[in-house]
Design a protein around this nucleic acid. Structure first.
Lengths: 243, 243
DNA sequence: TGTTTTAACCTGTCGAACAAGTCAAGATCT
DNA sequence: AGATCTTGACTTGTTCGACAGGTTAAAACA
């Protein structure tokens, strides 16, 4: 049975009420993987001793975690981990052939279009810097003549992150293999058949980035949807017509 | 200054822990309009006296309401109403509080809007019949004064199915499980008190259904997005601007 | 060996006490 | 007379101890 850490975090953003601190400490321990679903937490008295707070404070924190569905308490037995937030809520079945790939593009148009909209609305300077960094790395891969699929994914993930809604991030993660295949096709073909195409793709990336930079939400959404729709056509043009 | 009601609800579905009961009682009072934003609640001791519970129980309940953003407590001054959620909030019993609920709504607007678009484009006669069946069942539940979360989900799932893209289905299915896992379904009864709202929601459902029937893709998307956005506002209600 | 009992431990609740903070009324100053 | 300061009552935040009700594993019993 893992023990909770024995000191309260001293980061500058910690809340001022003790129950709020203990809530976040315990939550962090659970999210970071120290406990699995079904594991029993230390007793209220033990937590109070470790963190040098009274049992009432611990109870408030645990009460909130219970309300969040993260733990369940059973009188006499203890408090158990019930659900770990932030863990992936979605696992997608493996895709089949071309038709599935097309469906994946279609899904990404909805998902990433909206993520770009929210990114334009909410991005922080850090978020923007991460997108710019990914864009720059893509630029370098283009110049070096490398495929850069993973860099392309990084660019898209940075935008999903800037949406500041983890559901978008997690869904994109679940789509990773599907996304990889789609990007792999389009970037390989662009490399081998037409360098002009890479320039075009990067221009689309640049347009999305600019819309997010200036905070034009509708434009960001539109540019992202167009970009993925174009990618769909690029992949489609390279393959046999689907059923 | 209005006083809280002096008895604990005796409905069959009340939670078993006292702090949970007090939480719901106070929340119900706030949602039902007994307090306005900025109003001060009775003191902890007063609430404890009225409900015949100890102050520790009251504190746990208020701590949760504070975490939901519904109240703010100032040491020495009292506890004040900060935000009044809509009635829908009572039903949804957000896991992780208001912020998580908002993220979920946001995500659904993106995905279900697009699913409705594709459903309008692609639905078969069978798909349409399934949506109509779900709609009819919702109608019957409304007439009978029952509220079926599962029926509502069924309606939305039937539309996602008509998109004929399994990624939408899988994702919304996972989201429903994620949202309702551990959800407190005990507040369904609160919804029966507002028939006007049920009529309004069902009209929105009907509009989506019609758009899908006639194959108007953009209208279907728009109506679905509006429907979920409205649901968001019904849940979150009027509020003081967040920090 | 299977069943029952028991003791240690756990969460749920209560109540008292003290610390820190708020705020309005009264006292004091200009 | 108006502005400022002081004070006391009240409030929330936290600690502590006690008891009630429940769990569970070990010990006792048949």
């Amino acid at each position: 049975m893992p023990r909770l850490a024995s000191t309260i975090s001293t980061t500058a953003t910690e809340p001022s009420r003790l129950p709020d601190r203990i809530y976040e400490e315990i939550l962090e321990q659970i999210v970071s993987g120290k406990f699995s679903v079904g594991d029993r937490l230390p007793s209220e008295n033990q937590i109070g001793t470790e963190y040098k707070v009274s049992r009432a404070v611990v109870r408030e924190a645990l009460s909130r975690l219970a309300a969040d569905g993260v733990v369940v308490s059973r009188q006499g037995a203890g408090t158990f981990v019930h659900r770990i937030p932030g863990r992936e809520f979605l696992r997608l079945a493996p895709i089949g052939g071309i038709a599935d790939l097309m469906r994946c593009f279609e899904f990404r148009i909805a998902l990433e279009g909206e993520a770009a909209y929210l990114a334009a609305q909410r991005r922080t300077d850090e978020n923007l810097a991460a997108i710019e960094d990914a864009f720059k790395r893509l630029e370098e891969a283009n110049i070096a003549g490398e495929v850069g699929v993973e860099l392309d994914i990084s660019y898209h993930v940075a935008i999903a992150r800037a949406s500041r809604n983890n559901l978008f991030m997690q869904t994109l993660d679940a789509l990773a293999v599907h996304t990889f295949n789609g990007m792999n096709i389009t970037r390989n073909l662009s490399l081998t058949s037409n360098r002009k195409r890479l320039v075009l793709v990067q221009e689309e990336h640049r347009r999305i980035l600019e819309a997010i930079r200036v905070g034009d939400e509708d434009l960001a959404r539109r540019e992202m949807r167009t970009h993925i729709d174009n990618a769909r056509h690029r992949a489609l043009g390279a393959s046999v017509e689907p059923e």
